[in-house]
Nucleic acid binder design. Structure first.
Lengths: 245, 245
DNA sequence: GGCGCTCTATAGCGTCGCTATAGGTTGTAC
DNA sequence: GTACAACCTATAGCGACGCTATAGAGCGCC
């Protein structure tokens, strides 16, 4: 009998993935604090030095779990639903709901992102999510539905939606305020989007020319745009060029 | 010589407060994870059983620190500024700002609240803060300025403001988006308050900002706008100014 | 005097994150 | 065909952690 002490690299999931999976399942099923490296090693059938060989530290492992889990969640969603809605604003709403749902599906994982916040720069996962939101907002901006820059809007949406998600996670599952997420979502979006389905801004597909015309008109009507006289003249010239005059 | 082994109850701060203070200072000065019960005991000049006698557990101590710190922050604010504004809606805005500022003043403490979130019921501190927000909203409700129940409004305000605070904490201190908090605040309040005669900002008609945003996006999507690279950069700067307000 | 609260003091249990050390097995490169 | 690096096993332990047990001293109160 061959002593089955070592696992050939060809069979089963790679050791790294087994560790990842073990950590993820422990994180999901147990109360947050219970994910010890020892428990992960036992479940993965792996020795401690192996874990540290792959992930460096406990935090490195947890970061990898969160990042991997979120990416999988997004992939699964896209597979299930074929794609994003055609209306860019509906797509933004859809993105908000997906974010909140991920948090409720994996509360321990989600809470862990914010358990490790430090005044310093990181958490990489949060940055990733915010960039994802900004990407969702870009089409809306292109159709003239945004009243602020996509970066600003993304910051607001990210902050508000993660706050809602954390608040919902803290509530007991049976007594959750089901409307909370949508109420805050619509409040934030209302402040970020131009009013109404049809706006004074040009039609979506018209390109820069129409937007330039609209902006020229808006500038003429505005009382005190934050521009110096020289800047005003300069901007006007550029807008005229864009308008194709 | 009397062996100064025990401290009479009459001199110095009470033991409980010394422990609280030691934990608070450790939390503020060190990176979050460094607040061990042993370090707290050493700094407070206290034995381990005493700590557990007063606070039950490490988490109980941390809860007390956060709660006490927040109450002190509020008291200090009220002392500095004479009291809450007479207009109930202004008081709500003031409460939001106080909440966010507390988080930025004590990032480690604030982040800790959310590091301990569990799907189950707790965290006592969060409940306490939400109740505080509800109390602030009560006068506004009494004067007929709320369009939802105070409890609903408090849930929204709590979720959004804590999300904003956590987002700001994660940003590097020098590159913080100063307007983020107020933008989200006004968005949430606008959805929760009846459209009163006194609004925070005088009816922002879409104006040039929305057109500027739309044009920026259209330029990004356009293949070959009739502009030189230099003109493009210049136009972008002007458009950002118009969009940023 | 008895009782309960508060605090000291020592000592220890079980667990944790992490590392040192050593040896076995693999696929690849020279 | 052997040397090599990567990967993994296995054991064993360090220092720190949260928390508790136990015993007793000083104090205020009925």
């Amino acid at each position: 009998m061959a002593p089955r002490t070592t696992t050939p690299t060809t069979d089963g999931p790679a050791t790294r993935d087994r560790i990842l999976l073990a950590a993820a399942s422990l994180l999901d099923e147990a109360a947050g604090g219970a994910v010890s490296t020892r428990a992960v090693c036992e479940r993965a059938g792996v020795q401690a030095p192996t874990l540290y060989h792959h992930f460096g530290s406990r935090q490195g492992l947890l970061d990898a779990v969160v990042s991997h889990g979120f990416r999988e969640h997004l992939a699964a969603r896209q597979d299930r639903e074929g794609g994003t809605p055609e209306d860019p604003v509906d797509a933004v709403r859809e993105g908000w709901d997906a974010h909140v749902r991920f948090g409720l599906d994996h509360p321990e994982t989600y809470a862990m992102i914010y358990g490790a916040v430090r005044p310093g720069e990181p958490c990489g996962v949060a940055r990733e999510v915010e960039a994802m939101i900004r990407a969702t907002l870009e089409p809306a901006a292109r159709s003239g539905r945004l009243r602020v820059t996509p970066a600003q809007a993304a910051a607001e949406v990210f902050a508000a939606s993660s706050g809602v998600t954390l608040a919902l996670i803290q509530q007991p599952a049976d007594g959750r305020d089901d409307g909370l997420s949508h109420r805050v979502r619509d409040a934030v979006l209302a402040a970020v989007l131009v009013d109404g389905p049809s706006s004074p801004t040009p039609a979506p597909g018209d390109g820069p020319a129409a937007s330039a015309v609209a902006l020229t008109a808006a500038l003429d009507a505005a009382d005190d745009p934050p521009l110096s006289p020289g800047e005003r003249v300069l901007l006007r010239e550029l807008l005229d060029r864009l308008a194709g005059g």
